[in-house]
Amino acid sequence: MNKLLRFAILVCAFTFLSSQASAKKPDWIDGTSKKYPEPHYFIGMGEAMLGKGSEKQVHSLAADRARAEIAKSIRSSVSVDERSGRKVESSAKGKSRDLSQDSYQSSSVRISAGQILEDVQIKEYYKDKKEGRLYALAALDRPKAAKRLSARLDQVLKEISTEMEMGREAQDAGNYLPAMKRYSNALSLSSGASDIAELISILKPAGPSPLSEGLATAEIKELISKLGSMIAFEIKINDENSAIRPYIVRGLKNYGFSVGADTAGAKKSYTLDCRIDIIEKGTIDMGPGLLMNVYQADLDVEITDTSDGNVIGSMTWSANANEKSSVAAEKSAVRALGRLVEKQIGEKLVGI
């Protein structure tokens, strides 16, 4: 009986000590972890008040906040300085490190950490009953995440190569607008590739640059600019007095296309047959003595290859405006339509 009692006491003591050990405040609450050390891991700690919602909601909130802390530590502002190269703010402590490269970008780039958050894992929870808080530890295995991003970067670089090859084929065949579309696709992809490369550099600060040979972003831009100057547009509008023309012209020129008399050096020409319609939509009662007239402006554009007369595509826009007078509402609708056309016409044309 005494032996059984002593055994029971020992079991209780062991259980008590074990529970005390498991309840001990973990080191990661203070920002560092022996189990998940730097530089192999990025870690983040999140917390939530106990009793503020269901247990599931409290755990979810603490976990989300822990992931957000990692996102903060890897979200980087890349500033360019031709004298010192790039500086990437990547440390949770706000320190910077120099990533000088042979090529420089002309503007600051904001890197999103969202691409690698899928690699973040919630490793542990700690419940502090005294403080009434639940803590969550999130960890990012940096080499593992870098490996996945490197595979993605390789794929993007292949896609860029494919788009450039298809663009050259289209250009050689005289299909300039489709060629512009391919080059524009390559340019967009190159921007994404640069972002991925920056993330890899943050994850592997001691490793070589994943884009040591550089992306030909500047060359692609130059190619698009030169090709744009080879394409000329003639604009025909059903209402030649319409105020929409200047917006169309500016939109085309902003994208690098030649327009009207500005066609020296153009090798390919297209006609834009434009039809603008102004529609009275009625009135809106805005309150006592305030009746607003509503007008809609529509623009339909048909694109014709002037070399063979074939219609290769079409574009449409629509915009609304309301003013006290009918005349003002009509003018406002045309202005709203014009701003939309000016902003979008280049992108829409290369998407034909």
Rank of each mutant, 00 (worst) to 15 (best):
I312R: 11
V156N: 05
E347N: 13
L252H: 03
V78H: 10
G256C: 10
K25H: 10
R245M: 10
Y41H: 10
K348F: 02
D102Y: 10
Y247K: 06
R152P: 02
K129L: 12
P288I: 04
G282V: 03
Y270F: 14
D141P: 05
V259D: 03
K268G: 02
S242G: 06
P178I: 02
A206G: 12
L189V: 05
L137H: 05
S73N: 10
D172P: 03
D141S: 08
F42N: 09
P26F: 07
A328H: 01
S314L: 04
T263V: 12
L189F: 08
F257D: 02
V11L: 14
N241H: 08
A328C: 02
L134H: 03
L272C: 04
S112L: 11
A179P: 06
S332E: 08
R182H: 14
L137I: 03
A232S: 13
A336H: 11
L137Q: 06
K147T: 11
P143Y: 13
A138V: 05
M292A: 09
S326Q: 12
Y255F: 14
K268E: 05
A321G: 03
R182I: 00
L134I: 03
R275W: 00
E213R: 15
L61Y: 06
V301W: 01
Y270I: 10
P210F: 01
D262M: 13
D81K: 15
A243T: 08
S184Y: 11
E163R: 15
E163K: 15
S100V: 10
I303V: 15
L137D: 01
G51E: 05
C274I: 04
Y36K: 10
I122W: 07
P178R: 09
S307L: 11
G338V: 02
M49G: 08
M1F: 01
Q57M: 13
Q101F: 07
N185F: 07
S33P: 01
K236W: 00
E159L: 12
L199Q: 08
I116F: 06
E55T: 07
N254Q: 14
R152T: 12
V259I: 13
M315R: 12
D98C: 09
N2G: 14
G51K: 12
R250V: 04
R148F: 03
V334S: 03
E165P: 00
R86G: 07
I237F: 00
Q155M: 11
S191D: 05
S100R: 15
N241P: 00
I9A: 14
G53A: 08
V341N: 03
D298F: 00
